[in-house]
Amino acid sequence: MLRTIKRLITIDQAMKIINKKNHTLYSKKELGQIQLLLPVILLVTVFSLAPLLRGIYLGFTDYRLGDPISFNGIENYIQLFNDEYFWKSFKIGMVWTFIVTALQVSLGLGLALLLNTKIRFVSFYTILILIPWATPPIIRGILWRQMYEPNTGAVNILLSDAGLISAPINWLTSFEYVIPAVIVAGIWGEISKAAIFLLAGLQTIPNDLYEAGKIDGAGIWDQFWRITLPVLKPVLAAIVSLTFMWNFNTFGIIWVLTQGGPGGLTRLPMLAAYEEGFRYGYIGYAAAIGNVMVIILSVMLFMYIRVQLRERNES
């Protein structure tokens, strides 16, 4: 998603260069620039722009796999508005996104603060916490699926050895435990991302501020609330927005863990769109879900950029 937007921006810049003096012939320099951009424009058009535009267009058709495509205006969106499955999964998606984002960022902040202290082997720990993030979501899902396996999984064995449970729990198919179980699996891999971003932010805070604070009698909490957090705010805003979008679009790990079950309890919006498109073949409708999600995410992106700009203007 983000990459697509970035590419779009590149195209936008390219178009500006092309259109700058469109009432006269291009100058020699500009022609040279166009030539240099041509390979990129070609690739972006073929592999990003065209599929994107086609995806948007399909959202306004009744295309079902195997059938011819015909335009049906906003019919998909009317259907979507009344689709209890989609709204149920949207609600689940929101709960998931808020909880997972909050936990990822707050735990990531904790980790970043720890790594920012003068403990030994910091670089070793940093590499260690990067490993889960470097693991693809599908692999993370498979790992956690094995951990949650009712009879042979590590989670049940640990809990029953500790005497906490008497019978094995089937974490991924139980209505009571599945949401906490997937949330734990979901935050595990992504804490590192938040931690690394925030650590970079923390390292830019000059030590003078803390020393000045100490002279004024600020304790550790005061330092955190009045120095660390305010200075870190732009980085926090960025990481929260990015993580939010990321989590809203989660697919891989949940697909591997539960396929949206039990009873559709973990069917996030992306899974709903996938099922519509590939399981049931309603490509047009799935594309419409995609379009709606892009709009929702664009609103979030807009808010994120606004916060960013405001912060920059203030400082």
């Binding site: 079950g261 039990p262 009873g263 049931y280």
Partner: peptide, 17 residues
């Protein structure tokens, strides 16, 4: 096919749980 995976399996999961 859609009915089975969208309606029957999830509702039966809730019933048997």
């Amino acid at each position: 096919v859609e009915w089975k995976s969208r309606v029957a399996n999830p509702v039966l999961q809730e019933l048997f749980a």
